[in-house]
Simulated assay, not measured.
Amino acid sequence: MKKQLLSGLVAAAVLGTMALPVSAQNLAIVNGKAVPKERAEVLKKQLERSGRPVTPEMEGQIKEEVIAREILMQEAQKRGLEASADYKAQMELARQGILIQELRVDFQKKNPVTDAEIKAEYDKFVAANGGKEYKASHILVENEDEAKAIIASISKGAKFEDIAKKQSKDPGSGAKGGDLDWAAPANYVSEFTEAMVKLEKGKMTETPVKSQFGYHIIRLDDVRQAELPKLDDVKPQVAEQLQQQKLVKFQEGLRAKAKIQ
Protein backbone atom coordinates (compact mmCIF):
# COMPACT_ATOMS: atom_id res chain seq x y z
CA MET A 1 0.00 0.00 0.00
CA LYS A 2 2.80 2.38 0.94
CA LYS A 3 4.70 1.50 -2.26
CA GLN A 4 1.63 2.26 -4.42
CA LEU A 5 1.06 5.57 -2.63
CA LEU A 6 4.73 6.51 -3.01
CA SER A 7 4.80 5.62 -6.70
CA GLY A 8 1.61 7.61 -7.23
CA LEU A 9 3.12 10.69 -5.61
CA VAL A 10 6.28 10.36 -7.69
CA ALA A 11 4.24 10.06 -10.89
CA ALA A 12 2.21 13.14 -9.97
CA ALA A 13 5.36 15.10 -9.26
CA VAL A 14 6.88 14.07 -12.60
CA LEU A 15 3.72 15.02 -14.49
CA GLY A 16 3.66 18.34 -12.67
CA THR A 17 7.20 19.19 -13.69
CA MET A 18 6.44 18.17 -17.27
CA ALA A 19 3.45 20.54 -17.36
CA LEU A 20 5.40 23.57 -16.10
CA PRO A 21 7.08 24.49 -19.40
CA VAL A 22 3.69 24.44 -21.18
CA SER A 23 1.97 26.72 -18.63
CA ALA A 24 5.04 28.96 -18.51
CA GLN A 25 4.54 29.67 -22.21
CA ASN A 26 1.05 31.05 -21.59
CA LEU A 27 0.12 34.50 -20.38
CA ALA A 28 -3.22 33.32 -19.02
CA ILE A 29 -6.03 30.81 -19.51
CA VAL A 30 -9.28 32.50 -20.57
CA ASN A 31 -12.42 30.36 -20.54
CA GLY A 32 -10.23 27.29 -20.83
CA LYS A 33 -8.25 28.65 -23.79
CA ALA A 34 -4.53 29.33 -23.47
CA VAL A 35 -3.32 32.85 -24.31
CA PRO A 36 0.35 32.63 -25.44
CA LYS A 37 2.92 35.07 -24.13
CA GLU A 38 3.97 35.86 -27.69
CA ARG A 39 0.97 38.17 -28.06
CA ALA A 40 2.25 40.38 -25.25
CA GLU A 41 5.74 40.32 -26.74
CA VAL A 42 4.38 41.50 -30.10
CA LEU A 43 2.57 44.43 -28.46
CA LYS A 44 5.70 45.25 -26.48
CA LYS A 45 7.80 45.32 -29.66
CA GLN A 46 5.27 47.58 -31.36
CA LEU A 47 5.56 50.09 -28.53
CA GLU A 48 9.35 49.91 -28.57
CA ARG A 49 9.41 50.46 -32.35
CA SER A 50 7.37 53.62 -31.86
CA GLY A 51 10.03 54.89 -29.46
CA ARG A 52 8.16 54.29 -26.19
CA PRO A 53 10.17 52.46 -23.52
CA VAL A 54 8.19 49.66 -21.87
CA THR A 55 8.25 50.02 -18.07
CA PRO A 56 7.31 47.24 -15.61
CA GLU A 57 4.01 49.05 -15.03
CA MET A 58 3.31 49.04 -18.76
CA GLU A 59 4.05 45.31 -18.97
CA GLY A 60 1.17 44.77 -16.56
CA GLN A 61 -1.05 46.95 -18.73
CA ILE A 62 0.00 45.00 -21.81
CA LYS A 63 -0.98 41.74 -20.10
CA GLU A 64 -4.42 43.14 -19.25
CA GLU A 65 -4.83 44.39 -22.83
CA VAL A 66 -4.01 40.92 -24.25
CA ILE A 67 -6.50 39.27 -21.90
CA ALA A 68 -9.19 41.83 -22.75
CA ARG A 69 -8.64 41.20 -26.46
CA GLU A 70 -8.95 37.43 -25.97
CA ILE A 71 -12.25 37.86 -24.11
CA LEU A 72 -13.66 40.09 -26.85
CA MET A 73 -12.34 37.83 -29.59
CA GLN A 74 -14.00 34.77 -28.05
CA GLU A 75 -17.32 36.64 -27.93
CA ALA A 76 -16.97 37.70 -31.57
CA GLN A 77 -16.26 34.10 -32.56
CA LYS A 78 -19.36 32.92 -30.68
CA ARG A 79 -21.41 35.33 -32.75
CA GLY A 80 -19.96 33.97 -36.00
CA LEU A 81 -18.44 37.31 -37.03
CA GLU A 82 -15.39 35.59 -38.53
CA ALA A 83 -17.55 34.42 -41.41
CA SER A 84 -18.56 37.90 -42.54
CA ALA A 85 -17.20 39.31 -45.81
CA ASP A 86 -16.27 42.57 -44.09
CA TYR A 87 -14.16 40.75 -41.51
CA LYS A 88 -12.35 38.74 -44.19
CA ALA A 89 -11.63 41.89 -46.22
CA GLN A 90 -10.26 43.71 -43.17
CA MET A 91 -8.14 40.70 -42.25
CA GLU A 92 -6.61 40.70 -45.71
CA LEU A 93 -5.78 44.41 -45.45
CA ALA A 94 -4.28 43.84 -42.00
CA ARG A 95 -2.21 40.91 -43.30
CA GLN A 96 -0.91 43.06 -46.14
CA GLY A 97 -0.06 45.91 -43.78
CA ILE A 98 1.90 43.64 -41.45
CA LEU A 99 3.84 42.02 -44.29
CA ILE A 100 4.65 45.40 -45.85
CA GLN A 101 5.91 46.69 -42.53
CA GLU A 102 8.07 43.61 -42.09
CA LEU A 103 9.45 44.16 -45.60
CA ARG A 104 10.36 47.75 -44.69
CA VAL A 105 12.07 46.66 -41.50
CA ASP A 106 13.98 43.97 -43.38
CA PHE A 107 15.08 46.48 -46.03
CA GLN A 108 16.26 48.97 -43.39
CA LYS A 109 18.29 46.30 -41.62
CA LYS A 110 20.00 45.29 -44.85
CA ASN A 111 20.47 48.86 -46.12
CA PRO A 112 21.53 50.95 -43.12
CA VAL A 113 22.51 54.60 -43.49
CA THR A 114 26.27 54.96 -43.12
CA ASP A 115 28.17 57.71 -41.31
CA ALA A 116 29.70 58.71 -44.64
CA GLU A 117 26.25 59.22 -46.16
CA ILE A 118 25.16 61.30 -43.18
CA LYS A 119 28.29 63.47 -43.42
CA ALA A 120 27.79 64.00 -47.16
CA GLU A 121 24.16 65.05 -46.66
CA TYR A 122 25.14 67.41 -43.84
CA ASP A 123 27.85 68.99 -46.01
CA LYS A 124 25.26 69.61 -48.73
CA PHE A 125 23.03 71.32 -46.16
CA VAL A 126 25.90 73.51 -44.96
CA ALA A 127 26.83 74.47 -48.52
CA ALA A 128 23.25 75.46 -49.31
CA ASN A 129 22.56 77.31 -46.05
CA GLY A 130 25.96 78.63 -45.00
CA GLY A 131 27.21 82.17 -45.48
CA LYS A 132 25.26 85.18 -44.27
CA GLU A 133 21.80 85.54 -42.80
CA TYR A 134 19.80 88.74 -43.16
CA LYS A 135 17.28 90.29 -40.78
CA ALA A 136 15.00 92.39 -42.95
CA SER A 137 11.67 94.15 -42.73
CA HIS A 138 9.35 95.01 -45.58
CA ILE A 139 6.09 96.67 -46.49
CA LEU A 140 4.17 95.01 -49.31
CA VAL A 141 1.58 96.95 -51.35
CA GLU A 142 -0.26 96.33 -54.60
CA ASN A 143 0.82 99.27 -56.77
CA GLU A 144 3.95 101.29 -57.40
CA ASP A 145 2.45 104.70 -56.67
CA GLU A 146 1.39 103.61 -53.20
CA ALA A 147 4.88 102.20 -52.57
CA LYS A 148 6.52 105.47 -53.68
CA ALA A 149 4.22 107.44 -51.41
CA ILE A 150 5.20 105.23 -48.45
CA ILE A 151 8.92 105.70 -49.17
CA ALA A 152 8.42 109.48 -49.28
CA SER A 153 6.44 109.40 -46.05
CA ILE A 154 9.11 107.38 -44.21
CA SER A 155 11.83 109.68 -45.55
CA LYS A 156 9.97 112.60 -43.94
CA GLY A 157 9.90 110.89 -40.55
CA ALA A 158 6.97 108.47 -40.57
CA LYS A 159 7.62 105.26 -38.68
CA PHE A 160 8.26 102.19 -40.87
CA GLU A 161 6.66 99.80 -38.34
CA ASP A 162 3.44 101.81 -38.03
CA ILE A 163 2.92 101.95 -41.79
CA ALA A 164 3.66 98.23 -42.10
CA LYS A 165 0.99 97.38 -39.55
CA LYS A 166 -1.60 99.56 -41.29
CA GLN A 167 -0.84 99.12 -44.99
CA SER A 168 1.25 96.00 -45.66
CA LYS A 169 -0.52 93.25 -47.60
CA ASP A 170 1.73 90.62 -45.99
CA PRO A 171 -0.34 89.55 -42.95
CA GLY A 172 2.50 87.58 -41.35
CA SER A 173 5.10 90.32 -41.22
CA GLY A 174 2.71 93.25 -41.33
CA ALA A 175 1.34 92.48 -37.89
CA LYS A 176 4.93 92.56 -36.58
CA GLY A 177 5.76 95.92 -38.12
CA GLY A 178 7.19 94.32 -41.26
CA ASP A 179 9.71 92.12 -39.42
CA LEU A 180 10.75 89.06 -41.48
CA ASP A 181 13.18 87.75 -38.83
CA TRP A 182 16.49 86.07 -39.74
CA ALA A 183 16.68 84.18 -43.03
CA ALA A 184 19.10 83.13 -45.74
CA PRO A 185 18.92 85.16 -48.98
CA ALA A 186 17.71 82.07 -50.86
CA ASN A 187 14.48 82.14 -48.83
CA TYR A 188 13.21 85.13 -50.81
CA VAL A 189 12.27 85.64 -54.45
CA SER A 190 15.21 86.77 -56.58
CA GLU A 191 14.07 90.41 -56.96
CA PHE A 192 13.72 90.79 -53.20
CA THR A 193 17.10 89.16 -52.51
CA GLU A 194 18.93 91.20 -55.10
CA ALA A 195 17.71 94.48 -53.59
CA MET A 196 18.16 93.37 -49.97
CA VAL A 197 21.81 92.26 -50.22
CA LYS A 198 22.79 95.63 -51.74
CA LEU A 199 21.51 97.58 -48.73
CA GLU A 200 23.65 98.83 -45.88
CA LYS A 201 22.59 97.93 -42.37
CA GLY A 202 19.73 100.20 -41.26
CA LYS A 203 19.02 101.47 -44.79
CA MET A 204 15.82 101.17 -46.85
CA THR A 205 15.29 100.79 -50.59
CA GLU A 206 14.91 104.17 -52.25
CA THR A 207 12.62 102.83 -54.97
CA PRO A 208 9.92 100.13 -54.82
CA VAL A 209 11.02 96.55 -55.56
CA LYS A 210 8.60 94.72 -57.83
CA SER A 211 8.03 90.96 -57.47
CA GLN A 212 5.26 88.49 -58.25
CA PHE A 213 3.62 89.47 -54.96
CA GLY A 214 3.48 93.22 -55.53
CA TYR A 215 5.74 96.14 -54.60
CA HIS A 216 8.11 95.95 -51.62
CA ILE A 217 9.74 98.61 -49.49
CA ILE A 218 12.68 96.76 -47.91
CA ARG A 219 14.75 97.73 -44.89
CA LEU A 220 17.87 95.82 -43.86
CA ASP A 221 18.01 95.62 -40.06
CA ASP A 222 21.05 93.40 -39.50
CA VAL A 223 23.46 90.86 -41.02
CA ARG A 224 25.28 87.91 -39.42
CA GLN A 225 27.05 84.70 -40.27
CA ALA A 226 24.61 81.82 -40.54
CA GLU A 227 24.30 79.82 -37.31
CA LEU A 228 24.02 76.18 -38.35
CA PRO A 229 23.57 73.20 -36.03
CA LYS A 230 26.53 70.88 -35.54
CA LEU A 231 26.52 67.47 -37.21
CA ASP A 232 26.23 65.60 -33.90
CA ASP A 233 23.13 67.62 -33.00
CA VAL A 234 21.23 66.73 -36.17
CA LYS A 235 22.70 63.31 -36.95
CA PRO A 236 19.59 61.30 -35.94
CA GLN A 237 17.31 63.52 -38.05
CA VAL A 238 19.62 63.33 -41.06
CA ALA A 239 19.85 59.54 -40.72
CA GLU A 240 16.06 59.24 -40.55
CA GLN A 241 15.66 61.45 -43.62
CA LEU A 242 18.19 59.42 -45.61
CA GLN A 243 16.58 56.16 -44.52
CA GLN A 244 13.22 57.37 -45.75
CA GLN A 245 14.77 58.41 -49.07
CA LYS A 246 16.27 54.93 -49.48
CA LEU A 247 12.93 53.36 -48.69
CA VAL A 248 11.14 55.54 -51.25
CA LYS A 249 13.69 54.59 -53.94
CA PHE A 250 13.28 50.92 -53.03
CA GLN A 251 9.49 51.16 -53.39
CA GLU A 252 9.78 53.09 -56.66
CA GLY A 253 12.17 50.42 -58.00
CA LEU A 254 9.72 47.65 -57.18
CA ARG A 255 6.92 49.59 -58.81
CA ALA A 256 8.98 50.16 -61.97
CA LYS A 257 9.74 46.43 -62.27
CA ALA A 258 6.19 45.28 -61.57
CA LYS A 259 4.04 44.05 -64.45
CA ILE A 260 0.75 45.88 -64.10
CA GLN A 261 -2.06 45.16 -66.56
Rank of each mutant, 00 (worst) to 15 (best):
residue 107 F to N: 04
residue 253 G to S: 12
residue 198 K to V: 11
residue 134 Y to N: 01
residue 36 P to S: 12
residue 78 K to T: 12
residue 208 P to V: 08
residue 15 L to N: 04
residue 192 F to I: 04
residue 141 V to P: 00
residue 55 T to M: 02
residue 118 I to F: 09
residue 102 E to G: 03
residue 254 L to Y: 06
residue 97 G to L: 11
residue 243 Q to R: 05
residue 104 R to A: 11
residue 65 E to V: 13
residue 15 L to V: 04
residue 42 V to S: 10
residue 82 E to C: 07
residue 147 A to S: 08
residue 194 E to Y: 10
residue 162 D to F: 13
residue 168 S to G: 06
residue 79 R to G: 12
residue 163 I to W: 05
residue 74 Q to N: 11
residue 249 K to E: 14
residue 103 L to Q: 03
residue 102 E to V: 00
residue 13 A to S: 15
residue 83 A to P: 12
residue 178 G to H: 02
residue 155 S to W: 11
residue 159 K to E: 11
residue 231 L to K: 05
residue 255 R to E: 11
residue 225 Q to N: 08
residue 95 R to M: 14
residue 244 Q to V: 08
residue 124 K to H: 09
residue 173 S to N: 12
residue 217 I to S: 00
residue 62 I to S: 00
residue 118 I to E: 11
residue 186 A to R: 10
residue 17 T to E: 09
residue 168 S to M: 02
residue 82 E to V: 13
residue 228 L to T: 08
residue 119 K to G: 07
residue 210 K to R: 12
residue 185 P to M: 01
residue 131 G to V: 01
residue 172 G to R: 06
residue 37 K to S: 15
residue 67 I to R: 02
residue 75 E to G: 12
residue 47 L to Y: 07
residue 59 E to C: 07
residue 211 S to H: 04
residue 92 E to M: 15
residue 3 K to F: 13
residue 91 M to F: 10
residue 3 K to W: 14
residue 236 P to N: 13
residue 161 E to S: 06
residue 100 I to W: 03
residue 146 E to D: 13
residue 145 D to W: 00
residue 48 E to H: 14
residue 26 N to Q: 10
residue 27 L to K: 02
residue 153 S to P: 01
residue 220 L to C: 01
residue 7 S to Y: 02
residue 106 D to M: 15
residue 126 V to H: 04
residue 49 R to C: 04
residue 54 V to M: 02
residue 151 I to F: 11
residue 6 L to G: 05
residue 236 P to H: 05
residue 87 Y to K: 07
residue 250 F to E: 10
residue 71 I to T: 14
residue 76 A to W: 15
residue 129 N to D: 01
residue 146 E to H: 07
residue 45 K to F: 10
residue 113 V to D: 05
residue 107 F to D: 04
residue 212 Q to T: 10
residue 153 S to C: 10
residue 116 A to W: 05
residue 88 K to Y: 11
residue 73 M to A: 14
residue 213 F to P: 02
residue 206 E to F: 05
residue 250 F to R: 06
residue 250 F to L: 14
residue 125 F to K: 03
residue 65 E to P: 01
residue 190 S to M: 09
residue 200 E to C: 05
residue 127 A to T: 14
residue 181 D to Q: 12
residue 139 I to E: 00
residue 53 P to T: 12
residue 163 I to M: 09
residue 221 D to M: 04
residue 242 L to I: 03
residue 62 I to C: 00
residue 7 S to R: 02
residue 166 K to F: 02
residue 143 N to P: 00
residue 261 Q to T: 06
residue 130 G to A: 04
residue 201 K to N: 02
residue 260 I to W: 03
residue 252 E to P: 08
residue 190 S to H: 07
residue 139 I to V: 00
residue 89 A to F: 10
residue 259 K to I: 12
residue 30 V to L: 06
residue 111 N to G: 15
residue 160 F to R: 08
residue 248 V to M: 07
residue 196 M to W: 06
residue 257 K to N: 04
residue 22 V to R: 13
residue 89 A to K: 15
residue 223 V to Y: 02
residue 8 G to K: 05
residue 216 H to F: 03
residue 233 D to K: 07
residue 54 V to H: 04
residue 80 G to C: 06
residue 168 S to H: 01
residue 88 K to R: 14
residue 116 A to K: 14
residue 28 A to M: 09
residue 253 G to L: 02
residue 131 G to N: 03
residue 26 N to W: 09
residue 204 M to C: 07
residue 231 L to G: 05
residue 52 R to G: 01
residue 73 M to Y: 15
residue 116 A to L: 15
residue 129 N to H: 09
residue 223 V to P: 02
residue 189 V to A: 15
residue 15 L to H: 03
